[in-house]
Amino acid sequence: MNFKHKYVFLLPGLIVLIGILIFPIIFTVRLSLSGWNSFNPGLDFIGFKNYVRLFTDDPRFWQSFFRLSFLAITTVFLQYVIGFALAHMVWKDIKFKRFFRVLFLIPMMTTPVIMTVIWRTFFHESLGPLNDFLSIFGVQPPWLSSPSLAKVSIIVVEVWQWTSFMFLLMLAGLLSLPKEPFLAAAVDGASPFKKFIYVTFPLMAPISIGAIVIRLIEASKIMDTVFVLTSGGPGTSTETSSFFIFIKGLREFQMGYAATASFTYLIIMIISLTIIVKVLTKVLMRE
């Protein structure tokens, strides 16, 4: 094909993206080498001091990163399984198909920073409906005030909101599947279970990988949910990386240090996502 055309297609988008982003990225790297804070706002050069501090003297950042990994992987796994299952269930004949499909799409359309306030009232341990309902069974779980249950609450909210994202992608994927493999399977008399394992799932593997990766990226930025539900508490039990960076940056105004943490986070994420993509491709596509 003609060589020039491909650039005409690609470059407008690429140039706009790079044009808008090049300054912020370079600035962030430069910022990470400065001591910019509330008292001394400026791009002085302090070398790798911030990086040394991050790597040798800040267990809180690393704890928050591992907590984030746990939360992101758990929520994305749940979203994928539930989203795929739901999509499969409303794919074909079911009553009120359209109603369910639209309904399942709605949660992701709510603004997290507002919807999480509703969830906070929902989980409110003495004034909320959840414990009011559970009191029938005589239990009052401390949804937001126990370190372990607070994590569960955050997972519940994240799964509620973002399963619809998986659901839509999986449903769109299912609806665009070619019919021939299914006809062949029907001729062979395969059971529904076998049909799913040998026909549906392999065909869905590429879109699954894409969906999981983008969700991992988004889930790793989890911030509003944590901020509104628990502010990272009780103690530090629900702090995630972006919450940590938010506190350091826009609360304590240690902008230089926050940039260091962000840039480190960016690098770690790019490396781990590359690995995850490779592993997923291997496992799901059986390459």
Binding site: S38, G233, E252
Partner: peptide, 23 residues
């Protein structure tokens, strides 16, 4: 003082850990 927010934020983190029984 300069860095008020850093001091108060560090205090909040520490006391929150105590309230949660982490320390």
């Amino acid at each position: 003082v300069p860095g008020t927010f850093e001091f108060n934020s560090a205090l909040a983190t520490g006391t929150a850990k105590a309230l949660a029984g982490q320390l």
